[in-house]
Design a protein around this nucleic acid. Structure first.
Lengths: 162, 162
DNA sequence: GAGAGACTACTCGGATACAGTCTGTCCGAGTAAATCCGG
DNA sequence: CCGGATTTACTCGGACAGACTGTATCCGAGTAGTCTCTC
């Protein structure tokens, strides 16, 4: 059970977009160059974000993406679910129903105890991811990345943002 | 990111094995019949458990599996890691290193802030799974399953346990 | 009745096959800004 | 100088291909009880 690399890409792209001034758009091409990723395939991840309403897009030259909401309202979980789908990490196929010892036509009530534990763990994971927003991530990044690189990157980005 | 069905199978099989009297073994065939699963493929999951040392096996007739440790010492996480591997659910490919604005030969220290959040969420998931043992699961199951089915199942099982 | 050998039922590991997902590429349609051209 | 047509640069969506993983089956090798056969 490993998250696909598109999740990592989407998170990094959102981190960049959250630092973009209001109303500016950044193209897939620029995002791909900045992270050294295949432009066409990265585009799929961004389309997922767009479809989930996390990101807004404009066509034409100087088009591209920007966040659709304030960075403080976008969580890690939003981004991950947009890319990876919002299903649970554990699906219960109710194999207890195959027990040959059960009376004919027996219908169980309630969910399988094993599935409940798995779902609680899943929920713990989601709770953590729901608690971190892009705004908080931006603060951490700004405090950790050497100022010259941080500023240089955003000069580079603004140079390409429409 | 969905756990494979072998995880579900392994958990159910361990639940049954934890109810087995000391020293008795239950065969793959019986476990497969009980859950309505393909015997050969289920065997792969059980082999994983065996390789991880969670389960002990004997060859020959009346051979099969039993738990290698007391049920109170086997956690959900043990079983899941045995089947699914013990790697993290998020791998950081350090794509920030591809940033064209970084000075030549720049070497970062510390891990990516994005990866750290993902790993904390992963750890929250693992912590929950580490906190539930097979012994606790057995108690819940016994309290939830109607006594006639519970007893009938274990009669069926003991009938086939060597 | 005792011991040796054959038999049986099981685990283990490898080989194989198939389907689905992940990764990646390519191309055409649509859109909006910039550019060009005729009046 | 102005307005319409063309060009350009981008997104979007679908089609496609290759690699990898998950699911499933089959078979031979090895092992430990059981059964049989012989003395």
């Amino acid at each position: 059970m490993i998250l696909k690399s598109q999740v990592e890409w989407a998170l990094h792209c959102c981190a960049i977009l959250s630092g973009l001034p209001e109303g500016r758009y950044l193209s897939t091409k620029a995002l791909a160059e900045l992270h050294g990723l295949p432009k066409e395939y990265l585009s799929k991840a961004l389309q997922s974000l767009s479809q989930a309403g996390l990101v807004h897009t404009t066509l034409g030259p100087s088009g591209g993406y920007r966040l659709a909401k304030p960075a403080a309202e976008v969580t890690f979980l939003d981004i991950i679910e947009a890319v990876e789908g919002n299903g649970r990490t554990f699906v219960c196929n109710n194999i207890r129903a195959n027990n040959p010892c059960r009376p004919e036509g027996y219908c169980e009530v309630g969910s399988c105890a094993i599935a409940r534990v798995m779902w609680e763990a899943d929920e713990a994971w989601r709770t953590k991811l729901r608690s971190v927003t892009l705004a908080e991530l931006g603060q951490v990044l700004e405090s950790e990345i050497p100022p010259q690189i941080w500023n240089g990157t955003f000069e580079w980005v603004l140079d390409r943002a429409g």
